[in-house]
């Protein structure tokens, strides 16, 4: 339960950074925080107290094994996170080259 709350707090910290920060790099950092919080939650979901690693070379009936699926999901989520972060940074860099600023309010031209 405490771990669940911790990951939610990390999620909200990331959301806070995205909403309040004017520097675009800090917004990108906020996204990384959100991703980490969700990945953390996934990793915790697969945890069982006192469990064996889920490698079935000699199957032992009655033993507790940890759940391998969340690790695969976390890997996929990390790959997607890599793509998102890379694309966001390249957008930020392009914007910086066009306008010469990382500040969202100086960049703003559209009405929203």
């Amino acid at each position: 339960m405490i771990i669940l709350v911790a990951s939610l707090i990390l999620f909200l910290v990331g959301l806070y950074a995205i909403i309040t920060k004017r520097n675009m790099i800090k917004v990108a950092v906020g996204f990384s925080l959100i991703e980490y919080s969700v990945n953390f939650l996934f990793a915790i979901v697969g945890f069982r107290p006192g469990a064996l690693p889920p490698i079935l070379q000699a199957v032992e009936v009655g033993k507790v094994y940890s759940d391998p699926l969340p690790q695969a999901l976390v890997l996929t989520a990390i790959v997607i996170g890599l793509g998102v972060t890379a694309f966001m940074l390249s957008l930020i860099l392009r914007l910086y080259n066009r306008i010469g600023s990382f500040d969202l309010e100086e960049i703003q031209r559209l009405k929203g």
Partner: peptide, 16 residues
């Protein structure tokens, strides 16, 4: 892919 991400990010300094 990771190399091309790096190249794209690094080569913006030449484009502009």
């Amino acid at each position: 892919a990771i190399l091309s991400i790096f190249v794209v990010l690094a080569s913006t300094k030449y484009i502009f």
